Simulated assay, not measured.
Amino acid sequence: MTQTEEKKEKNGSRSKKIRNIILKILGAIVIAIILFLGIVYITNVISSNSEAKKIESYGQHVSVDGKNMNVLIQGEGKETIVLIPGFGTAAPALDFKLLIDELSPYYKVVAVEPFGYGLSDATEKERTTENIVSEIHEALQQLNIDKYMLMGHSIAGIYGIDYVNKYPDEVTAFVGIDSSVPTQPGMDAKLPVKMFNFLKKSGLQRLVVKFSGDPYAGLAFDEHTVEQMNMLSNKNSNSSTTLNEMGHIASNFKEAQGLTFPKDLPLLFLIQANNTGVKGWIPLHEEQIKDSVHGKVITMDGEHYLHHTLSKEIAEDVRAFMNEAK
Results as ranks from 00 to 15, higher is better:
residue 238 N to Q: 04
residue 250 A to P: 04
residue 253 F to E: 01
residue 240 S to V: 15
residue 230 N to I: 12
residue 240 S to F: 12
residue 222 D to R: 06
residue 252 N to K: 03
residue 215 P to I: 07
residue 233 S to T: 12
residue 231 M to K: 13
residue 228 Q to V: 03
residue 215 P to K: 07
residue 248 H to D: 11
residue 250 A to K: 06
residue 223 E to Q: 14
residue 231 M to Y: 13
residue 246 M to E: 03
residue 217 A to S: 15
residue 226 V to R: 02
residue 252 N to L: 01
residue 241 T to Q: 01
residue 219 L to K: 13
residue 247 G to N: 04
residue 256 A to D: 00
residue 256 A to S: 07
residue 218 G to C: 08
residue 253 F to Y: 12
residue 247 G to L: 05
residue 235 K to N: 04
residue 214 D to F: 03
residue 238 N to C: 06
residue 236 N to T: 06
residue 235 K to D: 04
residue 235 K to R: 15
residue 244 N to H: 08
residue 249 I to L: 15
residue 250 A to Q: 07
residue 212 S to F: 12
residue 244 N to L: 03
residue 245 E to G: 09
residue 250 A to D: 08
residue 220 A to I: 05
residue 251 S to E: 14
residue 242 T to L: 12
residue 244 N to R: 03
residue 245 E to K: 06
residue 245 E to C: 02
residue 254 K to W: 07
residue 238 N to G: 03
residue 237 S to T: 15
residue 240 S to C: 09
residue 244 N to M: 09
residue 211 F to L: 11
residue 211 F to C: 09
residue 212 S to T: 10
residue 239 S to Q: 05
residue 256 A to V: 03
residue 242 T to S: 06
residue 225 T to E: 12
residue 216 Y to T: 10
residue 249 I to M: 15
residue 223 E to M: 10
residue 238 N to F: 13
residue 213 G to E: 12
residue 211 F to S: 11
residue 244 N to S: 10
residue 233 S to R: 13
residue 222 D to T: 12
residue 251 S to V: 14
residue 244 N to C: 07
residue 255 E to T: 14
residue 243 L to A: 02
residue 224 H to V: 14
residue 234 N to Q: 11
residue 230 N to P: 07
residue 229 M to L: 05
residue 224 H to A: 15
residue 254 K to R: 08
residue 241 T to D: 02
residue 213 G to W: 05
residue 221 F to I: 06
residue 254 K to N: 10
residue 244 N to Y: 01
residue 248 H to W: 12
residue 246 M to S: 02
residue 224 H to L: 14
residue 215 P to S: 08
residue 220 A to C: 07
residue 253 F to W: 10
residue 218 G to R: 07
residue 217 A to W: 08
residue 230 N to T: 10
residue 243 L to T: 02
residue 223 E to P: 08
residue 214 D to S: 10
residue 240 S to K: 13
residue 252 N to H: 01
residue 211 F to V: 11
residue 242 T to H: 00
